[in-house]
Amino acid sequence: MISLTSPVRTRAQDWPAAAKLGALLAATTALFLLPGLWVQIAALAAVLGLYTLPGRVFLRHGLAQLRVLWPIVLVLLVWHALTGDLPDALRIALRIVNAVALANLVTMTTTLSDLTEVVHRIFAPLRRAGLPVAVIEAGIPLVIRFTPTLIQKGRALHQAWRARSSRRANWRIVLPMTLLALDDADHLAEALRARGGISPFED
């Protein structure tokens, strides 16, 4: 499965993932705590600068990721305009865009395996405290393996539906998809057991 890491290789890919996450946390906190419209405008300029550094392909890809935000930004601006507080609306809208853009930046410049490694380290104290984090960690590759398979089977179900119906497949397709997932879970449990089951890995 393709992750959201940018295909464009940047220098930031070599920086430690934990440091990037720490910086993101600090920056996002600052965005929320510092008052004033000008802080957000300056932050936007800085964020755009960061997006431009790796080149045009990266910039276009990054901006495309932000498009999902426009409906909520629009609602926000119209809403505040009606109540007569446009500068505040602008500040809040910019804050949202800045926060999401920065977070996306970390996602785009950090590989899946680096982030999985960070998760493993964050989980270490929880593991020692006896929480069932091993189940979650063991599940990561399993979901990556089975999501495309399930989507593919879902598409096959759609086709089987359309082969015998003139109408579009509707919510009723959720039941066979759930059964498929349960069947796959049975097979997966068997395959795991056949090769030794899940015992927490020690590293």
Binding site: R145, H187, L188, A191, A194, R195
Partner: peptide
Amino acid sequence: NPEHQIIFP
């Protein structure tokens, strides 16, 4: 069915 056996991506 190898689909039932392969566990990882």
